[in-house]
Design a protein around this nucleic acid. Structure first.
Lengths: 221, 221
DNA sequence: ATTTGTATTACCCATTTGGCTAATTTTTAA
DNA sequence: TTAAAAATTAGCCAAATGGGTAATACAAAT
């Protein structure tokens, strides 16, 4: 069985030594090196690519999120596992956006971490149960569970509405009232209202709030 | 090593037989049963829960998305792997929203499927490379990669508003009027209105539409 | 040349909304 | 125990909203 090669980025010396010591015991793992900052790891990657990088977040100079982004851009085949004690929603999402395959908290037992490494190497993702709700919550809610109208497609809306109506909808989403919309695009309040009525009717919703929510949900604006 | 117990839901008889035949060869897998419709599987789950359910999407009566939702609500510990030929973005997102742990396309080799089953059983997620960009794209783009200003925080709103106000805001986002909100949570229309006013004031917006947009934009709902 | 679709404006009317103040009860925290 | 915060209800009022119909103008398509 092929070994899984691995780099470790962790600024705290003792943690680094401890992980290295623990991980080297596992036969399936080939511990290629450990670094106290992200740049050293990137330099090492330029010479020899690892299958997996264990990445801390709180680092000097370049933080783990930026490092993950750079590494994934240069070496998309290398998988990054975030290994940190940070649990903030923002940091988790930013890491995943940057391309991390897994997010582990530092209290993870070493045996479990090895399982995560194997799963990630296979192509899976893994999120620590404490933060797993965060990526899950970023999945948009479908309108229903029927095949036909799961999500309103943004193209659908674009085709349904006229140019002018889309213009009005955009302002509506920005929170403008009918009168403000009218002023913005230099039409009468009556016209603005007519457009809004038309939008509401075409989108098949009850009021402007739902129209705005629908537009935002479909990533139209 | 503990075996991984498994149900299979697939409407096409030949596919079902083929998967059953193939999967039963693997020692780590305990094939508990196969069903041509989702309800039969749910009924079976009520008697004996499986670790993993392989779920087709296009089924008679109840489709695989609905089935996944129901199963995950009743048995959150059971993991669902979608096994289908559908590749539409909407269906993928709806499945994941419903709680599926993995999404495999039917051309997957059986050995790979078994690896997916093992990874999912461990707690990982897996998305077929053909559709992996879909959940990835649902992760919102951070404003920067600096720790401080990654995203406008939804925690901010959560802290600002009371429990009750968050409840009302959720209904507001769903497009409910004050009266409907009142009925929904069994309070008077006056109270519902008071909550909405308070929300508008606290979020520092002009009206309910802006409040809804702000909530959706910050991924609060 | 005529139809069609869109944009524009207008009016009427019932309902909803948002701002304001104020009182009572419940819950929570100090 | 007392004080503060939150939830509940109420009434008043001006403004905004949404539904309906309808007329005019203009451009594009048939």
């Amino acid at each position: 069985m092929e070994k899984i090669s691995l780099y470790l980025v962790e600024d705290y010396f003792l943690s680094r030594a401890s992980y290295k010591y623990s991980l080297e015991k596992f036969e399936q793992i080939e511990f290629l090196g450990d670094f106290e900052n992200a740049q050293s790891c990137i330099d090492a990657m330029d010479k020899k690519q690892a299958d997996i990088i264990l990445m801390d977040l709180g680092l000097e100079n370049m933080n783990g999120i930026e490092a993950t982004k750079i590494i994934k851009q240069k070496y998309p085949n290398t998988k990054v596992i975030i290994l940190t004690s940070h649990e903030s929603e923002n940091e988790v999402l930013a890491c995943l956006y940057a391309g991390a395959s897994a997010y582990a908290l530092k209290d993870i037992p070493i045996e479990k971490l090895v399982e995560v490494i194997k799963a990630v190497n296979f192509g899976a993702n893994w999120y620590d149960p404490h933060i797993a709700h965060i990526p899950f919550n970023s999945i948009p809610k479908p309108q229903s569970y029927e095949f036909n109208n799961l999500y309103p497609s943004s193209d659908e809306i674009k085709n349904l509405l006229t140019e002018r109506e889309l213009e009005v909808l955009k302002l509506l989403v920005e929170g403008k009232s009918n009168i403000e919309i009218a002023q913005e695009i230099s039409i009468s309040a009556h016209t603005a209202k007519a457009h809004v009525c038309s939008i509401i009717s075409k989108l098949n919703v009850a009021d402007r709030t739902q129209a705005a929510v629908k537009a935002v949900r479909t990533k139209l604006f």
